[in-house]
C-alpha cells in the first residue's frame, strides 16, 4: 500500500487525475495544502471510489477556514497523523 500526497485543488488543476490513475486499489490519498479543497462536499466527487482511503490534513483546512466544511467521509488527520500515514505505507508518491 502506497500513500499518494496531493497538494493541488481539483477545482483548478488536473493533477488529481494523474494521482488517481496512478493509485493501486488499496493505495491511500492524502490531501494537503490547496489539495484540501477536495474535501469539500462539492468537490469530493472527484475522488469517488476512495471511500475509507481519502485523508485531508487538518492544519491546512484550519488555515483556510475550511475545517468543519469537510465531507464526513474524508478522514481528517493532524500532522502527527500525516507521519503515521507515511509509516503505514511502503512508500509515498507526491503529486503537485
Amino acid at each position: 500500500m502506497l500513500l499518494h500526497i496531493l497538494n493541488r485543488s481539483p477545482a483548478t488543476s488536473r493533477v488529481y487525475q494523474q494521482a488517481l490513475v496512478s493509485m493501486a486499489p488499496e493505495d491511500r490519498l492524502l490531501l494537503i495544502e490547496d489539495g484540501v479543497q477536495g474535501a469539500l462536499p462539492q468537490l469530493v466527487r472527484y475522488f469517488d471510489g476512495l471511500q475509507g482511503r481519502l485523508f485531508a490534513l487538518r492544519e491546512d483546512l484550519v488555515a483556510r477556514g475550511l475545517e468543519g466544511r469537510c465531507e464526513a467521509s474524508v478522514q481528517v488527520v493532524d500532522v502527527d497523523g500525516f507521519v503515521a500515514l507515511t509509516e503505514e505505507a511502503e512508500r509515498t508518491v507526491s503529486w503537485y
Binding site: 502506497l2 496512478s22 493501486a24 493505495d27 512508500r91 508518491v93 507526491s94 503537485y96
Partner: peptide, 17 residues
C-alpha cells in the same frame, strides 16, 4: 493503459515525480 499505470509505483523501490 490506466490499469497498467496504477501498477507502476508499487513495482519500484523509489518513485520521483
Amino acid at each position: 493503459s490506466a490499469e497498467a499505470i496504477a501498477a507502476q509505483p508499487g513495482a519500484h523501490r523509489l518513485v520521483l515525480t
